[in-house]
Nucleic acid binder design. Sequence first.
DNA 1: TGACAGAATTAAAACGTTATAAATCCGGGT
DNA 2: ACCCGGATTTATAACGTTTTAATTCTGTCA
Lengths: 351, 351
Amino acid sequence: MNREATDLPIAPAGEKPTLRSLAEATGFSIATVSRALADDPRIAAKTRALVAEAAALAGYVPDRAARRLRTGRTQVVTLLLNTQHEFLGFTHEFLSGMTEALQGTGYSVNVVPDDVGDDRLAPVRNILRNHLADGVVFTRTEAFDPRVRLLMENDFPFVSHGRTEFTTPHPFVDFDNEAFARQAVQRLVGKGRTRLSLILPEDRFTFTQHLRYGFVSEARAAGVDHEIVDGVTLDSPAARIAETLRASRLGDNPPDGYVCVGEVTALVTLSALADSDAVLGRDADVFAKRASPIFDNIRPRIDTVFEDLRETGRKMAEMLLRRMQGEDPATLTHMLMPDFERLHHSPDTHA
Amino acid sequence: MNREATDLPIAPAGEKPTLRSLAEATGFSIATVSRALADDPRIAAKTRALVAEAAALAGYVPDRAARRLRTGRTQVVTLLLNTQHEFLGFTHEFLSGMTEALQGTGYSVNVVPDDVGDDRLAPVRNILRNHLADGVVFTRTEAFDPRVRLLMENDFPFVSHGRTEFTTPHPFVDFDNEAFARQAVQRLVGKGRTRLSLILPEDRFTFTQHLRYGFVSEARAAGVDHEIVDGVTLDSPAARIAETLRASRLGDNPPDGYVCVGEVTALVTLSALADSDAVLGRDADVFAKRASPIFDNIRPRIDTVFEDLRETGRKMAEMLLRRMQGEDPATLTHMLMPDFERLHHSPDTHA
DNA sequence: TGACAGAATTAAAACGTTATAAATCCGGGT
DNA sequence: ACCCGGATTTATAACGTTTTAATTCTGTCA
């Protein structure tokens, strides 16, 4: 019945501290200890302090399984991972950002493949049915993404990377791809380029439309020729993209300005140019979006704009936390702007 | 008390099936249902069949929290993620491989950052103390890796990516970096190169020693000059590596053959060559290890060997499963060979 | 002196499993 | 009929929490 903090027993080496052991150590009941740790105002302040001290001393950490069983809350957030396609370094940066934001919150990150088998919704259904997580995060969002629909129907917390065209608002984090496309066009036009070319992601992704709109309307405004490459998408095999680009360079009036949405596409474009003996800066220019630092080390240098995926992951985790705490989904949206500060003007690393 | 499989009640829409609901549906007790689902031979075969059918019909899935609380097994494996450095695409491929191998096993993958704060062992201690997982997987293994030591002391299942120099054997999956280094030297020597250069990872990693040994002994055997670049490592900022390489090219007798252990290093090397007006194939050659497909799209083309990180993740997860099932740790080792089949002989994508 | 309200604490149930120990069933031998 | 043993089945406790509904304390006021 020891209630003096000074002579509490030290943590026994072998067995892990539990509410019961804390109760025995402090002389209070399990219920009181539980409430005290939750800072319940119904518990006397002195008691709360005593219990807190005992818990710290013993290194008490609540058992996740027990809490989860009792409350139904898993303290887990799931990332739906597309295991096939990736922007270079995407997964790494994104995950790092997520874990960073979740650090110290008690939530842990669970990774589930989003593209196995025929039923595209199976992973989400599985999570919903068996309450495998308290929230979900995913990428490659489509205009009418079935995952979004299903999650909204079930009022389940989630944050999508990318917007949808559903009327009901939902939390998302997105990169302003329209602004990127516009800027890319402006840059190329500024260099005197008049025949622009763009390879788009697959049509079903929402950001494809944003890219298209930004590209087309800005090119029209500038009064320059522009084409969206037919027959291939960002997800096409690199070899096929290369093939298509090389073929296009054999035409009468090949493009002289390339907007590249991904790093791989940019590299393919560069090699297609090299393969057809076109010289960068003379025959054509390339403007690309980058998410990794590799372009710093590639010759010839090209202009790039940075999409911060670590920040994206961080923001998405933050919004998910707030959504799970019951904040209004409609307000939980965030747009990342093309990083003009860190715009990459082919810095000379000799300096 | 209905025991006929034919007219079992269908799964009620709202509430999730549980042992109790299955017991009510079949007329057996909870204990019997539990045992039947575990295929306990003490339960009559007919009963087992009946229960299995009812479970399937109801879509029963055991509650993870309850099972975890009762058994102490989490059904979780944790990947210790280094959030700072990455081989391009490493995390993505590795995780994809892991989830692939774990598909259908009931295990899920948890990602924990391995490099926050000052205490390098904190994540592992946290997992051990609070039994946050049944097994652990990590990369960037050191010769006397403290994580390995701690995990072994606690007899906790793990698989390391890379070997250690501890005498007690433990499960690992490793890439044969010595073989890679030897082959790289052979290739470069085969092209007539006589002054080879290598940038190593930090000394503390085990594979650094393997690379060094393979490189040095093969170069000696071939009787060619060779140097290990001083003052920088694979993890140095790309700019510093570039700086060092450019400086080295100004010397009397610059290297004419570069062995690159990572993609970024390879790119940096290429740009350093370009920056100092050296021509690949004439003034120097580069041989690199690649883990992503980007080299297919880089000009000038270089020879590369493929390290399959998806396969690595898959194998590590498989070994971990077997270790958790009690297999002898000493036998759970796997070496991945440099992929000679998929050796990249600068294929001409024009073909 | 009691009664009583509010403050503080607690007993006990529940979450869904698994596992120990005990109970029931059934057929065969006496 | 009766008992016995093996085959089945079951009641129950436990895992570590949270929370509902008491219960006990304390001091105040009639």
